[in-house]
Design a protein around this nucleic acid. Structure first.
Lengths: 143, 143
DNA sequence: GTAACTGCAAACGCTTTGCACCAAG
DNA sequence: CTTGGTGCAAAGCGTTTGCAGTTAC
């Protein structure tokens, strides 16, 4: 999706400073193919900026969430993981058993509209997450 | 939905003991019209069983989740709240801005089937949660 | 009687905060 | 130069664990 430079200039436009520690965190999270925990992000980003502190990872991720570039995922075990926001037609499927994540590509705008009409809730399509159970966990539960 | 006695007998059938502290927690959570936090549950249940310890609330809720009677909701601020599981056609809409919860009544089995076909994920319809933003929070974000 | 449950206190782990120093603009 | 960002250490807070006493069955 967006290149690192995009995120950095977005940061800049938002009135934030562009620093090496932030660049390292951004690089790390943009490479993510699955939701990464804070410690994973920390050690990944340290490959690029070794003196990076854990607190800076928290603060940078917070900023990126504010800017709608990153979303936080609550894993079933209570841990938080982070992932770049998907495009509007790509929806996350979060397994509440094992925390595994898959993506579902499909247009759900009609469903979203129906929900909005009935409840007043406006789904932000790039933020919608479907929670359920992956095939493995479903079998374990219903044994 | 289910009366308290049902839950107690389900507990019993699952090999757990039926105790006064658990009864108090169950009463409290069954009365919930919105997701309740641990401390809310604790003080509510204490009206029925004053010596109730916080740890017992945690442990009872955990048991009820195992038995698929209660589900845990991750609020945007990181707090956990708890709610009896809804029926298969009633789906939760969780606002990721303020944590407010609404319900959407509708049959999404065809969407669930489509998702299952494409990804292998099997949505448990009584566990599906739609995450997004309520009208208020959407306006705040997009100002 | 025995195994599960309870409550307390302490431990635990993730996250936030205070503060002095540093660097972007 | 000024303000925001950084790293460290400590505090904070929700949650879990160890343990001795208690209770369901």
């Amino acid at each position: 999706m967006s290149a690192q430079t995009d995120w950095l200039s977005l940061l800049h436009k938002a009135g934030c400073r562009v620093t090496a520690p932030r660049g390292a965190v951004i690089t790390a999270i943009q490479q993510a193919t699955r939701p990464l925990g804070i410690y994973e992000l920390h050690s990944l980003a340290r490959e690029q900026y070794p003196y990076l502190g854990l607190v800076t990872v928290y603060r940078t991720v917070e900023k990126l969430i504010e800017l709608n570039l990153v979303q936080r995922i609550h894993q079933p075990d209570g841990q938080h993981t982070y992932l770049p926001v998907a495009n509007p037609n790509q929806h996350m499927l979060l397994c509440q058993g094992c925390g595994h994540v898959a993506f579902f590509e499909g247009d759900i705008s009609s469903l979203a509209e129906s929900i909005s009409r009935k409840t007043g809730y406006q789904l932000d399509l790039s933020l919608v997450q479907f929670l359920g159970l992956c095939a493995d966990c479903l079998h374990q539960t219903k044994e």
